[in-house]
Amino acid sequence: MEYFLQQLINGISLGAIYGLIALGYTMVYGIIGMINFAHGEIYMIGAFVSLIGFLFMGIIGVTYVPLALFIVLLMAMLFTAIYGWAIERIAYRPLRGSVKLAPLISAIGMSIVLQNYVQLAQGARVKPLQPIIQGGFELFTGNADYHVRLSYLQIVIVLVTVVLMAGFTYVITRTSLGRAQRATEQDMTMALLSGVNVDRIISTTFVMGAALAAVAGLMVTLYYGVIDFYIGFIAGMKAFTAAVLGGIGSLPGAMLGGLLIGLIEAFWSGYFTIGYKDVATFSILVLVLIFRPTGLLGKPEVEKV
C-alpha cells in the first residue's frame, strides 16, 4: 500500500511535467495542424537556461531560494520563448500553406540543429545540479520499513502546473487573445477576414508553448538534478504521445494524457522491469488509438486551441 502511494506521488509529479510539454504540442497542432518536432528541444533548452540561471544566481549572490527560483523561472520562460518565436519565424512560417510534409521535415531538421547546437555550445557531458529544494513530508509512518515520501519539490511541481493550467485555461476561454486563437484554429481564412492578425496569433501560440516547456525544463532540472543535450527527444516523444492520448488539440486532454503517461511510467517502473517502460507507454497509446481514435477527450466538437 505504501509502495503504491509512493509510485502514485512520483507518477503525478512526472505526469505534471509531461503535461506541460504536451500542452505546447497540442496548442501548436490545434492551431496549424503540424507536429512541432522541435518542441522537445525547446524543453531541453529551457532546462539548460534554468541550469545556467541557477548557477548565475549563485554567482550574483541571490541565495533566498524562492526568489532565485522565481527569477530563474522568468528568465527561462523569456529566453525559451524567444527560441520558440524564432523557430516558428525561421523554419515554419515560410512553409505555411505548403505541402503538408514540408513543415514536418523542417521541424525535424530544426530539432537536429538545436540538439547539436547545444551539444557544441555546452558540451556533450551530463550536467549535474545540486538539489536546491530539499526536504519533504514523511507520510504514513506507521510502517517501519517503508515511508512514503512527499518532497517539497513534488508539491512545488504540482502547484506550479495547476496554477499555469488554470491561467492558460483562463487565457484561452476568457480573453480576446484566446478568442482569436480559437477562431484561428477553427478557420484561418475566416479569422483573417474578421481582422484577426493570424501571423501574430500563431507566433503567440508558439511563444506560449515554449514558455510552458521552459517551466517543464526547469522542473526537470530540479527534479532529476541531471540534464544533457539529448533529454528533449525522449521527453518530447512521450509528451506528444500524451497529447495524442488525451486527444490532440484539447488542453485538458494534454494534461490528462501527461498525467496518465507519468502514472503508467511510474507504476511500470515500480512493479515491472524498468527497461520496458517506454514499450508500455507506447503500447497503451496504440490500444487507446485503436479503440478511441480521437484520444480520450478529443471529441469532434471539443473546444480546442
Binding site: 497542432y29 495542424g33 507536429i35 503538408k100 514536418l104 516523444m237 506528444f240 504521445t241 495524442v244 490532440i248 522491469t273 527497461g275 520496458y276 517506454d278 514499450v279 507507454t281 507506447f282 503500447s283 497509446l285 496504440v286 488509438l289 485503436i290 481514435p293
Partner: peptide, 26 residues
C-alpha cells in the same frame, strides 16, 4: 493502426520504432 488519420499513424509508427529499439536493447 492504418484506419487512423495521418498524424496518428505518424506517432504510432514513431512509437513502434522506439519499441523495436527498446526491445532489441533489453
Amino acid at each position: 493502426v492504418l484506419r487512423l488519420r495521418g498524424d496518428y499513424l505518424a506517432i504510432v509508427t514513431l512509437g513502434f520504432g522506439e519499441i523495436v529499439r527498446v526491445v532489441l536493447l533489453n
